[in-house]
């Protein structure tokens, strides 16, 4: 008796959300099968890979390959151009590391100028990530949303504490996309989506950032949350969990011990950069397998590998 696999597709689907405009747009989400199960039904839009740069550019310190890639690019806009040109890159993520009041505390006006330059410089969609300071990000995003109007930018992220202003100023006032960030809990994720839609933000403007962790650092919670979100969206047709999921992988993985401990401290561990690349790649792959529709990475080697992985699965 021959065996035939039963394809498992659902009547419900993930919302499709375009980022960027015109020929440069990339659509994330869509599809009605479990993550990467394209043998059940061909992919509507393959998961997207974003390349993260920061306003400060300090991330390349101590990483010769990464520094070499960006060599000669002295401004965020120049780095953004190189990031956009990276093999496998679908979009660029500009992270305002320097805006953190606990750090450089770059002024909103300066950040806005950078955002404007960057969005003009690249031919790929832009994602703007904040400083992780709740108050500063509100100001920063509102101002950036204005200068990037008509560019269909995604802002990462609004949290329960500041979703109102970010939702109103970015999504409602300027029609941008907003990331809804919760910390690895399906119910909190859903609650935030409900609150955002009650504010008037359309589900078509929301991308979920479910929270993440580097491999080995409690990733089981990340995997289970993503898997449950996808199952609820597809199997239970939960419309408040059908927004696509984006995960800023790089900012998690490049700050764990494995990716920052210099080789001189840990000779047996070998090259620091290689460790960081693999930590980033392994985590990104696990995110995609669990249900991410877009990942944000930093290193050209990781970007290439993850893009190759996605292409091989289509």
């Amino acid at each position: 008796m021959p065996f035939t696999a039963k394809p498992r597709k659902f009547s419900a689907g993930i919302i499709e959300i375009p980022l960027g405009v015109g020929q440069n747009a990339v659509t994330i989400g869509g599809g009605n099968v479990l993550p990467l199960y394209y043998f059940d039904n061909p992919a509507k839009n393959p998961p997207a890979v974003g390349v993260e740069i920061t306003d400060t550019g300090v991330e390349a310190a101590g990483l010769p390959e990464l520094a070499a890639y960006y060599e000669g690019a002295n401004t965020p806009a120049e780095r953004a151009k190189k990031a956009a040109a990276m093999e496998g890159a679908d979009f660029v993520c500009l992270r305002f590391e320097g805006a953190d009041p606990g750090g450089l505390n770059r002024s909103v006006a300066d950040c806005v100028a950078i955002a404007k330059e960057v969005v003009e410089a690249i031919n790929k969609p832009l994602v703007i990530a904040g400083s992780k300071n709740l108050e500063k990000d509100v100001e920063l995003f509102s101002a950036c949303a204005e200068v990037c109007s008509d560019k269909n930018v995604l802002f990462l992220s609004a949290r329960e504490e500041n979703y109102k202003t970010i939702g109103a100023s970015c999504a409602l006032a300027y029609g941008q996309k907003v990331g809804a960030e919760s910390s690895v809990d399906i119910n909190l994720a859903k609650q935030l989506n409900v609150l955002m839609t009650q504010l008037g933000v359309q589900p078509q403007s929301i991308v979920m950032n479910l929270g993440s962790a580097a491999a080995g650092y409690g990733f089981e919670y990340v995997a289970s949350t993503m898997e449950r979100v996808k199952l609820a969206a597809l199997e239970q047709n939960d419309t408040m969990l059908q927004m696509p999921v984006i995960t800023p992988v790089a900012s998690e993985t490049w700050s764990v011990k494995e990716s920052i401990m210099p080789e001189s401290d840990m000779p047996e561990w070998g090259s620091l950069e290689e460790r960081g690349i693999e930590m980033e790649t392994v985590t990104a792959s696990a995110c995609l397998a669990s249900g991410c529709d877009a990942v944000i990475l930093r290193h050209p080697t990781s970007v290439k590998a993850i893009a190759a992985l996605i292409a091989a699965l289509l």
Binding site: G216, Y217, G218, E220, A223, W269, E274, I277, E278
Partner: peptide, 20 residues
């Protein structure tokens, strides 16, 4: 299998195969 491979992969495995 080097440390670069092992650190994330074994860490991930340890996460995924824990009993919730």
């Amino acid at each position: 299998m080097t440390y670069a491979d092992a650190l994330p992969l074994y860490g991930l495995r340890q996460n995924i195969f824990t009993d919730p």
